[in-house]
Nucleic acid binder design. Structure first.
Length: 421
RNA sequence: GUGGCUAUGGUGAAGCGGUCAACACGGCGGAUUGUGGCUCCGUUAUUCGAGGGUUCGAAUCCCUCUAGUCACCCCA
């Protein structure tokens, strides 16, 4: 117990942290290219924010939040996603008073209490992007391209972009009642889950994997045919923009997002070899969210990318960059007097930003050389009695095996010229 | 939250009721006195995810729990 991380959490060890840094730096690069700026919000927020923002009836809020009471009696959840928090910060700091749109991104941990699986953890990490204030659809296309370009820049292939429009408060109710009319007489034949979806969120029935439900849904009316004029025009224009940019996409009328705040554009990027957790990126427009959170009516759109899933996909496609630690100099002292000399040398070199290390295990020279070659270190400075007496160091090139006795004072210059090559 | 499968050292794994828990890799140490990457030698699990039970005897059988994994649910 004491030596096990809590269920659904993972330690990132030194042999993999380099992969994370790689992916995160790619995310930052892309955001810079697209003009998005980083925002960092707290890992916990007030419960009300997510109740309002995500929706009280959603699974995320109903059964997946890590909520605790703090010592002041406040109900505090660890954030299950970050869009609501970004909107909160947008309002709290009156970012709307600055030149709009607000183009923001974040990278960080999210928390959902769920049964862990590969690609689904209780603490997981998202890279998310939000563009607030523009009604689109140009910014919709921009955001989607950003996501696609990010994933492509990592070399990922076999990605599929799915696109849909979920309408707006004008047209969605019509579609909803149309759906309910469609399913009304089929109700007894639907599965248990779908019967409860009928009232709560009939659009979810379309998504059901039960054979019976899928068959019943064969001739279901599609939302694209029920969009109001504005939503239809928006959706059309978005498709035109994506085509103009040469981005391949697939319309998926059954694509429904799980969070209440989505309107109009909904999209998802899938990498199917990941199995059940194949959604690498999910996003959409949330034109009602900011008002819902107490601001002026303001449109917004964003997405989140699951970094664990991206890493899994990269691993599957053998696209993880090699991580090669290296060291310019390893100091190998042979006795206590030499340790002091070596320590001084190493300290000085480190101040000059030369990467170096020395023995702290009291090992034999043989063992020290072995260690240095595994590191791998480019040079080893062997320091024994003779060297200490003469203020010199036996500098050994680990690649060639050559070694020369040189003045300690010259080590730095020697290393610098060697590193030039 | 529901169902299936799994659980032996740092890693990959043998063992399937009865002497010291194979083997490989890795780690550490060594092969004459201050020299690595090859080779050779030694060493590295009083213990088999945890806790109960059955038995003269259990890593091996049973139960509970924990964790991983796959699928559902949902989502990134």
């Amino acid at each position: 117990m004491l030596v096990n991380a809590p269920r659904g959490t993972k330690d990132v060890l030194p042999d993999t942290s380099g992969f994370w840094q790689y992916v995160e730096s790619r995310a930052r690069e892309i955001c810079k290219i697209y003009g998005y700026h980083e925002i960092r919000t707290p890992i916990f927020e007030h419960t009300e924010l997510f109740l309002r923002g995500i929706g009280e009836t959603t699974d995320i809020v109903q059964k997946e939040m890590y909520t605790f009471e703090d010592r002041g009696g406040r109900s505090i959840p660890l954030r299950p996603e970050n869009t609501a928090a970004v909107v909160r910060a947008f309002l709290e700091h009156k970012l709307y008073a600055q030149p709009q749109p607000s183009k923001l991104f974040y990278i960080g941990p999210m928390f959902r209490y769920d049964r862990p699986q590969a690609g689904r953890l209780r603490q997981f990490h998202q890279f998310g992007v939000e563009a607030i204030s523009s009604p689109g659809p140009t910014v919709d296309a921009e955001i989607i391209l950003l996501a696609v370009q990010f994933l492509q820049s990592l070399g990922l292939g076999d990605l599929k972009l799915y696109l849909n429009s979920v309408g707006c408060p004008q047209c969605r109710p019509h579609y909803r009642s149309k759906l309910q009319a469609f399913y009304q007489d089929k109700l007894p034949q639907l599965c248990h889950d779908c019967r409860s979806r009928f009232d709560r969120n009939p659009m979810r029935i379309l998504d059901c994997k039960e054979n019976a439900c899928a068959e019943l849904s064969q001739d279901v009316p599609e939302i694209v045919d029920c969009l109001c004029e504005e939503c239809a025009a928006h959706f059309n224009q978005l498709q035109n923009l994506l085509k103009a940019a040469g981005t391949e996409f697939h319309l998926n009328p059954r694509l429904v997002r799980g969070l209440d705040y989505y309107t109009k554009t909904a999209f998802e990027i899938q990498y199917s070899p990941l199995g059940a957790q194949s959604a690498v990126c999910g996003g959409g427009r949330y034109d009602g969210l900011i008002e819902e959170c107490g601001g002026q009516p303001t449109p917004g759109i964003g997405f989140a990318i699951g970094l664990e899933r991206v890493l899994l996909a990269l691993e599957k496609q053998a696209l993880l960059p090699p991580i090669t630690p290296s060291l310019d100099l390893y100091a190998a002292p042979l006795d206590e007097n030499a340790v002091a000399v070596a320590f001084r040398l190493v300290s000085e070199l480190r101040r000059s930003k030369i990467s170096c290390d020395m023995d702290v295990m009291g090992r034999s020279l043989k063992a020290q050389l072995k260690y240095a070659s595994q590191y791998p270190a480019r040079f080893v400075a062997i320091i024994g009695d003779d060297e200490v007496r003469q203020n010199k160091v036996m500098l050994k090139n680990m690649k060639t095996g050559d070694q020369h006795l040189i003045d300690i004072a010259d080590v730095r210059a020697k290393l610098l010229t060697e590193m030039e090559e």
